[in-house]
Design a protein around this nucleic acid. Structure first.
Lengths: 172, 172
DNA sequence: TTTATCGTGGATAATTTCTATCTGCAATAA
DNA sequence: TTATTGCAGATAGAAATTATCCACGATAAA
């Protein structure tokens, strides 16, 4: 069981974007630099977040990314599913049926109990992720984070956010 | 987020071994054949289960594998951790510190809030897995599984289980 | 004692997934 | 128009997973 490291980057970017004012945006390249990540690859993850309507992108010079809705309505589950995909971690290969003794497929119509138990656990996992909102992450960081680290973050946002004229963004 | 397919095989094997009588064993090759898996690779997973004291192995011509303790005291979590390892799915790479703006490391002594939230979710996942015992899986299968499928399983165990003289098994 | 069966561990290869980069294209503010 | 930015696709490298093979030690049965 493993999560791609893109998840961490995606959450950090979303948390950063939660701090921009109004409908301002931050360019993807700036986000990549602030986390020491390769821009090309980070954009892949940002695109996935955009495709899932978690971020909005504004093209053109002065463009960039911003949250598609308030941080109170974005959960960690939203972000994890956008980056990692919606498929469950456990996929039943129905190896029960793969042995040498072949019987009618109708004997396997009932879902495998093992699969059910694994999916139940994954529901618990997703439920826990769904309980944490992006705004909780930001609030906790602002309340308990080190002042020096917060100062760096605020300075970064100040320096890179770009106000947008209208609320227009990419409509898919 | 993904689980290796060895997990499914491991759980099925453990469930099968839960049906053998007394201290009898089943050879790994027989288990592999019954699930249509490559023997060489399945044995790797069985070895991990053995190393984690979930299975016991008996060498020699009449040897094989059996549960190391009653199915009531084996949970899905035991098996998943044995096969997939104990490391959490989310590993915080502390990308907060990787940007161009370097400040003292003491600013990052507090654990990342994102990491805490992800680990909390994983605890929920593991707790759910720990609630399901191997005996539950077997009982559910015997109660609700298709009779034809159960007949095949029982016949397989009958055909391949091998009584052992003593309770001796590999002592690591 | 000999032999055949079985588990163990290491080495190795094939396959897939993840990570990373590059390039051309579309959109848009200046 | 021009420069900046996001977007999509192709591609390649790295790493993990999956799979196979072989030599070895242990052991029950002949």
């Amino acid at each position: 069981m493993k999560l791609g490291e893109g998840v961490e980057a995606a959450i950090h970017c979303a948390a950063t974007l939660a701090s921009v004012e109004g409908n301002s945006t931050i360019p993807g390249a700036a986000l990549a630099e602030s986390f020491g990540l390769s821009p090309s690859y980070l954009l892949k993850h940002l695109n996935m977040l955009t495709a899932e309507r978690i971020l909005e992108s504004v093209p053109g010079p002065a463009g960039g990314y911003r949250l598609a809705r308030p941080a109170e309505r974005i959960t960690l589950l939203d972000i994890v599913l956008a980056v990692e995909g919606r498929e469950p971690a456990f996929r039943c290969g129905e190896i029960r049926q793969r042995g040498p003794v072949k019987i009618d497929a109708s004997a396997y119509v009932k879902p495998c109990g093992i699969n059910a138990a694994m999916l139940k656990a994954e529901r618990a996992y997703r439920a826990a992720l769904a309980e944490t909102r992006l705004s909780d992450i930001v609030a906790n960081y602002e309340a308990e984070g080190d002042p020096r680290s917060i100062a760096v973050s605020c300075a970064f946002v100040e320096r890179n956010q770009r106000p947008q004229k209208s609320a227009s963004a990419k409509q898919i």
